[in-house]
Nucleic acid binder design. Sequence first.
DNA 1: TTATTAATGTGTCCGAAGTACATATTACTT
DNA 2: AAGTAATATGTACTTCGGACACATTAATAA
Lengths: 242, 242
Amino acid sequence: MQKLRLKSAEIEKSTHLEFFKIALSVDCVIFGYDKKKLKVLVFESDFEEYANMLSLIGDLVQPEEDLEEAPYRILRERAGLHDVYMEQVYTFGSVSRHPSGRVITTAYFSLVDIKTHKLPASETNLHWHDVDDISQMAFDHKIILDTCLTRLREKILEYPIVFNLLPEKFSLRELQDLYEAILGVELDRRNFRKRITLKNWLVDLNEMEEDVPHRPGKLYKLKKQLKSNGKPLRLKEQNLVI
Amino acid sequence: MQKLRLKSAEIEKSTHLEFFKIALSVDCVIFGYDKKKLKVLVFESDFEEYANMLSLIGDLVQPEEDLEEAPYRILRERAGLHDVYMEQVYTFGSVSRHPSGRVITTAYFSLVDIKTHKLPASETNLHWHDVDDISQMAFDHKIILDTCLTRLREKILEYPIVFNLLPEKFSLRELQDLYEAILGVELDRRNFRKRITLKNWLVDLNEMEEDVPHRPGKLYKLKKQLKSNGKPLRLKEQNLVI
DNA sequence: TTATTAATGTGTCCGAAGTACATATTACTT
DNA sequence: AAGTAATATGTACTTCGGACACATTAATAA
């Protein structure tokens, strides 16, 4: 690390020794979707105080690593995930939140298509867990999860991000099931289709579902300009990318 | 600091010495409003690299201090401000963002009524600066300011928080001027009044403006349940506090 | 005292978008 | 060939936001 010159009014009152004792970590809330259920990628904590409790995937930020890079690295290293949608949500910093000492954590959520992104066999501990079947977690991870879920629910109403949870091609029924799973409500089919049509997010592929046990529906995909590879989208109006 | 036990998979790969070298700071974007202009509280940086450039008020988070507590302390110590509306916005952590070393910062914005909260005479350097008259700042503070301003603009459309920038009693005209200053647009007076009425945020005080050089308008105040002393509001619908 | 001025206060029309709800069509199943 | 369960589409009602007009009030100027 480079030598410190502490001349700012912000820092001059302190010595490094006293202040550079805080660790910064990143915790990743990785959402997936399968069988009409919203999932989150978790593992059973090997931390003494929280043995066998569910834990989010996280790691310390490296000394020479940008904060925004850390969650992407963690997803690569721990879950073999590349090019996923990622968004910073909130930073949690209670003194007592981590039993090992002062660890402040920044929470990110990401959206992953479970079918396309297979988990690495090496990480046998990792698994996709129903979001609405989690009542407690290690550390303050339940609060982190809830905060990210709230943010997700707000965001999907205005921004076309849920498509990161689906395969390239999908039917309107699948899309509606996904919205219902995330929002936890039932939606009227006809009105849902109208709203989605109005947002003008989709392209009709002129293909039909196959191997479904009922009348097949049309398949759609997200418009190319609206695809979010990694970075969160910023939209003006409902279909214009800034 | 308590002794560390580093047994978690999150931490075990590292030694403290290597990782507890990151400093965490808080930067406060303190918004005010005066003479139809949105203001922000700044001072001229005494930091060598950024001499005479505008800087936000910030400080390092103390080793035994909750992250959420730090911005309140900073407002007290540096600006004599108590009980102000405060909201966490984003955490900035580029490796190179601070010339003194690895300093990650969490940005908060707060809303203050300039007339009620006078600045302490000791802080001669502090002053209220027009937000739209700032083109560059020290460090990455301009980006931090812009991020907070964007969040503020989104938030005021749905949540009754701008009232923290006004005195207890105000006219609809003053309220509209404030919205226009924050959003940077002109609004139709009649439609604005209709929208505000619809939101049902206000109480008609049956009092009139005084000492205005024109026909006085009615005075209103924010409904008591909607007052936000410090913590950000969470609303369901448009006027219900959860 | 009166007319002027500049603001406040209120209302209407219209179109966009959301909600409730009904019917026809299609393909698989029996 | 009939029954079933899903898709596909449409209509009426309501709510909300945006464009816009007119009457009212109080300070000011003649």
